[in-house]
């Protein structure tokens, strides 16, 4: 059950009651009073709550998120180099604390971010379609992702470029090649996992 809920994007008032561990009536009251944003199914009176609105509602009212999340931190690896993606996926999944998805282009990175809502993005600076700094800036322009951490991982180490990436909103910069332990420790530190 919990696994299903974690994948869903739109919830019924019953599901929201289950996740928030309150009665369905409370949920309906909150929905009707506007405290919980959502919509009614066209042609009926059924209420539906999108995942965003639910998360906002839960964070606002300090309701524990355990039912909505797996407990693992989501990491999106954006790199055009398959070997790098495979290595990071292998590394992070083997660690056990992370759930990993990957994207090979800036465009893919955008789409997957929307669905996967990663906690951390490992972003290569040089991408086939757009550069990492643009991806970085676009994400930072959206308040929905203000909690997302971005770590630039690049073979380029021009101090000027690093400075520019930081200004674009990157939380850290790690140069390739790297010490794998240092990278994992840094991710864990940023997303506050033990």
């Amino acid at each position: 059950m919990a696994d299903v809920l974690q994948e869903k994007q739109v919830f019924t008032t019953g599901e929201v009651a289950q996740i928030c561990k309150v009665s369905q009536q409370t949920v309906i009251r909150c929905f009707d009073s506007g405290k919980l944003n959502g919509f009614r199914v066209p042609g009926s009176r059924f209420r539906r709550i999108p995942r965003d609105a639910l998360i906002t509602f839960m964070k606002t009212n300090q309701i524990p998120m355990d039912q909505l999340e797996t407990g693992k931190k989501r990491v999106l690896v954006v790199d055009d180099d398959e070997a790098i993606i495979e290595m990071f996926t292998d590394l992070l999944e083997r660690d056990g604390r992370f759930e990993v998805k990957s994207a090979k282009t800036g465009y893919d990175a955008g789409i997957i971010t929307e669905q996967f809502r990663p906690d951390v993005m490992l972003l290569d600076f040089k991408l086939p379609d757009i550069n990492g700094n643009v991806v970085c800036r676009t994400i930072r322009a959206n308040p929905n992702y203000k909690h997302m951490q971005i770590i630039i991982i690049s073979g380029v180490a021009d101090p000027d470029e690093v400075a520019e990436l930081k200004a674009a909103g990157a939380d850290d910069f790690i140069r390739k090649p790297f010490d794998i332990n240092a990278v994992i420790n840094r991710i864990a530190e940023l997303v506050k996992v033990a």
Binding site: A83, M87, K126, S154, G155, K176, I180, N181
Partner: peptide, 21 residues
């Protein structure tokens, strides 16, 4: 050099990372 750094560092990162694992 900048181009080389990017192109070379990717495989180097993979070699290094896999070796560390």
């Amino acid at each position: 050099a900048a181009g080389a750094a990017h192109e070379l560092n990717n495989p180097l990162a993979v070699i290094s990372g896999r070796s560390q694992m």
